[in-house]
Design a protein around this nucleic acid. Sequence first.
DNA 1: CCAGAGATAGCACGATCGGTCGTTCTTAAC
DNA 2: GTTAAGAACGACCGATCGTGCTATCTCTGG
Lengths: 211, 211
Amino acid sequence: MAKNLAEDAAERRTRSDGDRTRRSILDTAVRLATVEGLERLSIGRLAEEAGVSKSGLFAHFRSKEKLQLATIEAAREIFVREIIMPAEAASGPRERVEQLCERFLSYVERLVFPGGCFFAVAAAEVGARPGPVRERIAKYQRQWMQLLEHNIAEAQAIGALDDAPASQVAFECNALLIAANTAFILHGDRTALERARRAIQVRLRPPSELR
Amino acid sequence: MAKNLAEDAAERRTRSDGDRTRRSILDTAVRLATVEGLERLSIGRLAEEAGVSKSGLFAHFRSKEKLQLATIEAAREIFVREIIMPAEAASGPRERVEQLCERFLSYVERLVFPGGCFFAVAAAEVGARPGPVRERIAKYQRQWMQLLEHNIAEAQAIGALDDAPASQVAFECNALLIAANTAFILHGDRTALERARRAIQVRLRPPSELR
DNA sequence: CCAGAGATAGCACGATCGGTCGTTCTTAAC
DNA sequence: GTTAAGAACGACCGATCGTGCTATCTCTGG
């Protein structure tokens, strides 16, 4: 216990060429994992795809599980850059929720990940398999829900949104986004994105507008 | 083309002991696949779990893909028995939609499949990987949506439901059900089921009730 | 510029993958 | 009761899995 000084993340790592390779590997890993799944992401195949040797790749992540966790971190960075950061500039909390949803749908439609939302795929894959990977996915999923809920509650506090329970509204918005993602990937159905937009627009309508 | 007489399903198969074994294998397969995924369902592991030899199991399904397709069929039978058939007895189309949703949530909560809804897991897994397995999953997903949509449209026709586009209402109901499934499996969050119930209840409220 | 640490590759390991083959036992139709 | 076909098995195939070990390079701090 005393010796376990959280050395997981604070690895000794310095050289720039190594970091570049590692980053390029993770770029490929994130792309592959969204289509094949985090588990089927095999080290041999990933090495081939990334243009490095199997053992060379393996030296960067010292186990498959750590590779998976690193892949999740890389995917999260993209998620934040594509969805969360652009919405920070919104003019108010209600508009921020609208933008979060719209950025999500856009990120699905533009196939930022070739298999749809990385976290939707991963959650379904590891949801029933306990372990660190599942815990990491669950953690980021909770953070996402809290981000929605927090902004919804703020919007209600300033009267920009009716006062249904914020957690309920967040649940409904997220449900529509994920369903749009699944339908778009499974059926190539672009209208699903439009249906989600419509439903969310109704759900987030300011109370001043007539019913 | 002339010789290809759709022999895929019309296999010669007779003996009763074989059918019994096959059925028991598929029971195990369906359970395993919902946790591990359709692809990670390995023939060796499945054989061990089912208590038969690898080659003995393999003789029943002559390729992994056919095993996967047979597993999907077995899962569909359970889905129909658990959800669709009980709802047929409903007193009207609006009530039928309500019961379909409620039976779905109950089937998730009772862990009829240990990893949650079989088709939700499978859709996420194979959604981005073209092939017969994906096509089968997509087909049953479409059938499910059509079942919802058809009954919603009927309910609207007799004035038991307001007249938003039936496909839109079906999309929203399905989204809430799938999101409840995911949250329940990933976080063990029973309140997600309640949130889905509440939202669906509002969505399916008969127009006679006051707003 | 030198030494040491990091980056990468080669090779091999035991396990498991999907799949084939030949054989033996069992059932069911005649 | 004979017999052809189905059911089930053990042994085995080549390929690939995740993971070590070792040996070279190459970068970088002193």
